[in-house]
C-alpha cells in the first residue's frame, strides 16, 4: 500500500533551470526507499516539494491520501524531515528544541516520548545541553530527534551521514533499521551508495531531474549486476591460452589471476566449461573466489550510460 505518491512533478526555477521533469514516484508504507543521484540531480528539490518547503511548477503529491497543497495541514502532519544541512537554534537546549518541533505540529507535550527518542539516539546525557555545545554528529542526531518528535509516519533523511565518521554512520543505520521496525516509512537520499545497499528495501535513481529507475534493491542488483570469478593460478602465465579465448578472461596480478565475468541469472553461466578448459590448457588452480557487482558499480554504470 502506498503512503506517498508524486505524480508528474515538475519544478522549473525562476532562473529557467528545470530541477524536476515530470517525476512519478510511489513510496510503500513501512519501506526504506533510497533516493540516489549525483549532485544537482533533483533529490533535495523533490523532498522540499513533498514537505511543502518548495512549490512545484506542476504535478501533485499525495501524502497518506492527502494532497500536499489543498490538504497541506493533514499531509504535513504525517511527515518528519531531517534536512541536509545541520540547522539548529544554537542557544536552545536539546529538549527545548525537541519540544518546539513537537509543538509546531500541534502535538500535546509528551516528555516521556521525547526522552525515549533521546535514549534511542544516545542523547539522554545531552538532554539539558545547549545545541552549540554538541559535536557535529550529535547535532545530526538532534535533527533526527526533532524530526521524530511529532511521531511522523514518514521520515525524510536528506543525506544523513554526509560528513560523519564511520562509527556514527553505523549507529545511524542501526537507528534507521529500528525506525523501520517501528513502522516508520523512510525516504533516504544519499551520495553513499553503500549506505543504500546496506539499509534500503527499494532504490530510486534520479538524474537530471528525472527518475531513471525505481526497483527493489535485490532485484536491481541481480538484474544489472555481474558476477565475477577470480581464479588463482599455481604458476604465472604471460598470455591467455587459445582454448580459453571464448570466455573473455582478463589476466591480472602479474599473470597469477584470471578474472571471468558472467550473468548470474543466465541458464548457462559457462563456469563448468571454463574449468574444463583450464584443465585442457594444463593450468593448475590454487584458489577460486567469487564476487558480485556492488550497487555503487551499478549506479556508476547507469550514470555513465546516461551521459
Amino acid at each position: 500500500m502506498s503512503i506517498l505518491e508524486a505524480r508528474d512533478l515538475t519544478k522549473i526555477y525562476s532562473t529557467g533551470f528545470t530541477a524536476l521533469n515530470s517525476v512519478n514516484l510511489e513510496i510503500r508504507e513501512g519501506e526504506v526507499m533510497a533516493l540516489l543521484g549525483p549532485n544537482g540531480a533533483g533529490k533535495t528539490t523533490l523532498i522540499s516539494i513533498i514537505c511543502g518547503i518548495t512549490e512545484a511548477t506542476a504535478g501533485t503529491v499525495l501524502v497518506g491520501g492527502h494532497d500536499n497543497v489543498t490538504s497541506a495541514m493533514q499531509a504535513r502532519q504525517l511527515i518528519g524531515l531531517v534536512p541536509q544541512e545541520i540547522t539548529l537554534e544554537p542557544f536552545e537546549k536539546v529538549i527545548d528544541t525537541m519540544r518546539f518541533s513537537r509543538g509546531l505540529f500541534g502535538m500535546r507535550s509528551n516528555d516521556a516520548h521525547l526522552d525515549r527518542l533521546l535514549d534511542k539516539l544516545s542523547l539522554t546525557d545531552k538532554r539539558e545541553s545547549r545545541v552549540h555545545t554538541l559535536s557535529g554528529g550529535m547535532r545530526r542526531r538532534v535533527l533526527i530527534a526533532k524530526a521524530l518528535s511529532h511521531e511522523p509516519r514518514i521520515l525524510f533523511l536528506d543525506e544523513p551521514t554526509a560528513g560523519v565518521d564511520v562509527e556514527l554512520r553505523n549507529a545511524m543505520w542501526q537507528t534507521v533499521s529500528e525506525l523501520k521496525d517501528d513502522g516508520v516509512t523512510i525516504i533516504l537520499t544519499t551520495h553513499y551508495i553503500v549506505e543504500a545497499e546496506a539499509i534500503a528495501d527499494r532504490v530510486a535513481i534520479i538524474n537530471k531531474g528525472e527518475i531513471r529507475i525505481v526497483e527493489d534493491k535485490q532485484e536491481l542488483m541481480a538484474r544489472m549486476g555481474e558476477k565475477q570469478i577470480t581464479i588463482e593460478l599455481a604458476d604465472a602465465i604471460s598470455m591467455i591460452p587459445d582454448v580459453l579465448a571464448e570466455y573473455n578472461l582478463e589476466l591480472s596480478s602479474c599473470g597469477r589471476e584470471l578474472d571471468y565475468r558472467y550473468d548470474a541469472r543466465a541458464s548457462r553461466t559457462g563456469i563448468t566449461t571454463l574449468l574444463n578448459g583450464l584443465r585442457e590448457a594444463g593450468l593448475q588452480m590454487t584458489d577460486i573466489q567469487t564476487r558480485q557487482s556492488t550497487l555503487e558499480e551499478i549506479f556508476v554504470k547507469l550514470m555513465q550510460d546516461d551521459q
Binding site: I53, R76, Q77, L104, F105
Partner: peptide, 8 residues
C-alpha cells in the same frame, strides 16, 4: 524549514 514544513 521547520516552520515551512509544519502544519501551520
Amino acid at each position: 524549514y521547520e516552520i515551512l514544513s509544519a502544519p501551520v
